[in-house]
Design a protein around this nucleic acid. Structure first.
Lengths: 133, 133
DNA sequence: CCGAATCCAGCCGGATACTG
DNA sequence: CAGTATCCGGCTGGATTCGG
């Protein structure tokens, strides 16, 4: 084997920063959904487009993304309330790599489907205990 | 705003599968490191290239990746022990999008550095408590 | 419809000690 | 050097309830 010092992925290098953003569970999916809706979307529609994301998780993700400047939140003063999220320029910056990644995934779907499932879905254990009671 | 039904990112679609893999903390970095070392690398070198990844996390990640068929593990019967990890064809499949993503990150480094920090590093709180004792 | 707040079981992941 | 085993504090994130 070649014997040379491997590159060191320092804690604050660009690759890691990108990865960190991509590894936050719902962020990129929200950006993707917004993009597909012309850059703007209201909460409930967003929720529908992300099956498996609890309301709490969605709100939390949206708050963080807003703080990070990836999306903009606009509240319409009507009843019932209506909130619309839209991409900021910073958020739009991420569309390109995300769509690239997704496109790659679509193209290699069958190869990817052969990946053995990782990390058991650790839910549905408490619900069972609850109903047993 | 346009009023049309947003795409639904079903739980088992290609985009999600890709994202899930990318969102597992150390996986892509390991693949990246292996790639940069010509596709093979021993444990300690891998560890050195991933500052911040504890030994436990590294081992765990490597085990999962091995199970998923992304890397191959070869043990050399010598003392002291020597183990070498290498990319499988499946693992190699992921190199392209990973490098794409990293390259994009490098190119947009300054824009990315303006992202407000997310999710406080939740460590170093126990160590302090310990030394206080 | 949109969200905040609370509760709390279970997981994550670091630290440590031990094997070959 | 490479890896396993155990302990355990803190955080994650679902469920539920309340409010505008």
């Amino acid at each position: 084997m070649p014997k040379f010092e491997p590159i060191i992925l320092d804690e604050d290098c660009a690759p890691r920063r990108v990865l960190e953003l991509f590894s936050v569970k719902w962020t990129t999916m929200v950006l993707h959904s917004l993009h597909f809706n012309g850059g703007r979307c209201r909460t409930s529609a967003l929720a529908r487009s992300l099956p498996g994301c609890s309301k709490k998780m969605l709100t939390q993700t949206l708050r963080e993304m807003e703080r990070d400047g990836l999306i903009h939140r606009k509240v319409y003063p009507v009843v019932p309330p209506m909130v619309e999220y839209s991409l900021t320029p910073m958020g739009r910056l991420f569309i390109e790599p995300i769509e690239m990644l997704y496109a790659w995934g679509a193209k290699n779907d069958d190869a990817l489907s052969k990946l053995r499932r990782r990390r058991k879905k650790h839910t549905a254990s408490k619900a069972k205990a609850r109903e047993a009671q």
